[in-house]
Design a protein around this nucleic acid. Structure first.
Length: 431
DNA sequence: TCTGGGGTCCTAGGACCC
DNA sequence: TCTGGGGTCCTAGGACCC
């Protein structure tokens, strides 16, 4: 059996823990640059606010409605998430953190010893009490069915935050009332195709013969179909080393000059290098992309993407920044208004097994990797991010203050809330 | 004026090899 | 009229997830 523990409206709920005045109100949390809605409270969902709605359109679409909007505060959400996962680990031996707001537990063996319904209700109550986060728990034979169960737990108060699907009759009943579009692994495109084939609910899909699935759908879809029929086939082993790492941003305004773009790209490459080192890996492909504003139909649309192969796999900031900077020059076009850029690293392998560069001694490589990047990592960990940066990462100084702005300030967060749990200055005082 | 960021896997098609 | 068979690698793009 598997359990999924899923936070209810995660980002909004994190904010409400420290802002109880937001209870019962329509609340949304916004993406970077306060761009669009990424999380909604139940009240906001009820109003009909869709995920992904641009913030600037909210006022037009909902005139006269008071909607509380907040910038996203990932430091807060990450810390709350870690606390929740720590509690889950007290309740189950094998926990797979699937995303910031949900995790799977492999309950093999526990189903004989525990009353799973009671176990889930207790866990949900404990998380609510200790962290303040409402969670919904689904338990079933497969992850896909557990997801179905968790949605029932979320929707109907009668389940007391935990729904268990442990018999075939319960499975059929649950799937029969479940729209196929809400099944984990079925998105817009598959839903449209299934609708055209006359399949509306999850049970109708589960009851189709295997040959029908194989003929009409690609491989991964078959796993979803199996899981709906109670055959577990979505891997449970947690993948903790990523196969590709991306750092990208949209700019609050538009950028036309190459050197500003280079500063941003250098910062993205640096972030990628840090992420590589954190998972003890190196990469040998560095990709850079730049793009103009897709939404501005009045301006020329351009997207440039290029891959650069490194002679020696590396996670060194200097190597990656140099590669990304050179790549930028090959795709940059004069006279355009750039809105978005990013760096992707791939070809990722463990840093213990690096193919040596013919022209670089092992000692030299180690020196580069360890002495510079690792030292910078430890200084930045101790003194705060961006205490030590490459000159290439430095933004031009503000003429008024004489200080160079930080990378993390290049994004708008006008509605940001405090880092209640991770910054001493932000701790709430109660009078 | 203002439209996010970070991942996974699979497939189709083209260039090239023998 | 009729133009093989079997690979690899790369790129671009599409599907999905959060």
């Amino acid at each position: 059996m598997y359990a999924i523990i899923d936070c209810d409206n995660c980002f909004v709920s994190c904010e409400r823990v420290f802002r109880p005045d937001l209870e019962g109100k329509p609340v949304v949390v916004l993406s970077n640059n306060d761009g669009c809605v990424v999380a909604r409270s139940n009240e906001a969902k009820k109003l009909g606010i869709k995920e992904g709605t641009p913030y600037f359109k909210l006022a037009d679409e909902f005139p006269g409605v008071k909607i509380e909007a907040l910038s996203s505060n990932y430091t807060l959400y990450g810390d709350m998430s870690a606390r929740i996962m720590a509690i889950v680990r007290m309740y189950a031996p094998r926990v797979e953190v699937y995303s910031i707001d949900e995790c799977f537990c492999d309950l093999a063996g526990m189903d004989q010893t525990f009353n799973l319904k009671q176990w889930g209700e207790e866990l949900a109550a404990r998380i609510r009490k200790w962290v303040g986060m409402p969670v919904s728990i689904g338990i079933a034979d497969t992850k896909t069915l557990a997801k179905v169960a968790s949605r029932y737990a979320k929707t109907y108060a009668g389940y007391n935050k935990c729904c268990v699907i442990d018999t075939d009759s319960k499975r059929r009943k649950a799937l029969g009332a479940f729209p196929v579009a809400k099944v984990w692994g079925i998105g817009r495109a598959y839903d449209a195709k299934l609708a055209s084939l006359g399949v509306k609910n999850a049970l109708e899909l589960a009851d189709k013969p295997e040959g029908w699935i194989r003929m009409l759908f690609p491989l991964p879809f078959e796993n979803t179909w199996r899981e709906l029929n109670g055959v577990s086939c979505i891997d449970t082993t947690e993948v903790n080393t990523k196969k590709s790492i991306c750092t990208s941003r949209s700019f609050p305004g538009m950028i036309t000059d190459r050197e500003s773009l280079r500063t941003h790209i250098s910062n993205y490459a640096c972030r990628c290098a840090e992420k590589l080192r954190r998972q003890h890996t190196v990469c040998n492909i560095v990709s850079v992309f730049i793009a103009t504003n897709w939404f501005r139909k009045d301006l020329e649309w351009y997207q440039g993407l290029i891959n650069v192969t490194l002679h020696t796999a590396s996670s060194s900031t200097t190597d990656l920044v140099a590669a990304a900077s050179g790549a930028l020059d090959r795709i940059f076009r004069e006279g355009l208004n750039y809105k978005r850029a990013g760096v992707i690293v791939s070809g990722i392998t463990p840093d213990s097994a690096v193919q040596l560069d013919l022209f670089l001694s092992d000692e030299e490589r180690r020196k580069r990797l360890d002495s510079i990047s690792r030292t910078a990592d430890s200084i930045n960990r101790r003194m705060g991010t961006e205490t030590l940066v490459l000159a290439a990462q430095q933004y031009p100084a503000d003429p008024k203050t004489g200080k160079a702005p930080h990378f993390k300030d290049a994004i708008l967060h006008n509605l940001r809330t405090p880092c209640y749990t991770t910054n001493l200055h932000d701790i709430i005082s109660v009078e």
